[in-house]
């Protein structure tokens, strides 16, 4: 099980500078330990509001570790499921926050799980990006996951989004996918920026 990290510590009543999203420890869920992926997926397909948060996070992590492709659609429905903040996080009494490198998937673990599953998740991610009903948060996270899947050559990921945009029959759907392609191109490093921008234009 991967463990996510960050520590918030208390230091008197000094000013807090925050908005970060660290998480303590690893989720644990005895009910889902040593269970098959099918059962973990089935758990996630239950009524979300009634599910135990630790078990949801545990199931998402494990499905990602197992590269369990049948869970793609369900995981996409959890792209806005956030890891909880540490106790008292955000309190003015906790001014020091030890943090690490983070990307969307660090905060929304379904993103990491879908990135681990890899390219088989792309069609579903494109659907999420294109759908009018998708929130900007989820749309951006889905785009970040596409970027992560193609992390070895982000321009290829941009090209996949552009191609998907061209194939959409609904012009608004196409526009949303193209917008995400442009957003992701803006994240490319200086060395790869030209390739990414050129991919947008194709």
């Amino acid at each position: 099980m991967r463990r996510i990290r960050s520590i918030v510590t208390m230091l008197g009543a000094l000013p807090f500078i925050g908005g970060m999203s660290p998480v303590f420890g690893a989720p644990a869920c005895a009910d889902l330990e040593n269970k098959k992926p099918e059962l973990r997926l089935e758990y996630l397909q239950g009524q979300k509001s009634l599910l135990d948060r630790n078990c949801v996070l545990y199931a998402i992590e494990q499905l990602g570790n197992d590269h369990y492709a049948p869970a793609i659609k369900t995981l996409a429905g959890y792209l806005d499921y956030r890891k909880p903040d540490p106790p008292n996080f955000g309190s003015p009494t906790q001014p020091l926050i030890r943090g690490h490198s983070e990307w969307s998937g660090s905060i929304y673990p379904a993103g990491t799980a879908l990135a681990q599953i890899g390219k088989p998740a792309i069609p579903q991610l494109v659907e999420v990006i294109a759908a009018a009903s998708t929130s900007d948060l989820v749309r951006n996270t889905a785009g970040d996951v596409v970027f992560a899947i193609y992390r070895e050559n982000p321009a290829d990921g941009i090209a996949v989004l552009v191609e998907a945009a061209h194939k959409r029959s609904d012009p608004m759907d196409s526009l949303r996918v193209m917008d995400q392609a442009r957003r992701q191109a803006g994240r490319c490093t200086q060395q790869g920026r030209n390739d990414c921008e050129n991919a947008v234009l194709k």
Partner: peptide
């Protein structure tokens, strides 16, 4: 993470406890 200490300025030391500290797999 083997432990650490934080300060505000030169005072108010606070210890950060040791704990597993693995990176996100995408890194």
């Amino acid at each position: 993470f083997l432990g650490g200490t934080g300060y505000i300025g030169s005072g108010s030391p606070t210890n950060f406890p040791a704990q597993p500290d693995n990176s996100n797999i995408e890194f």
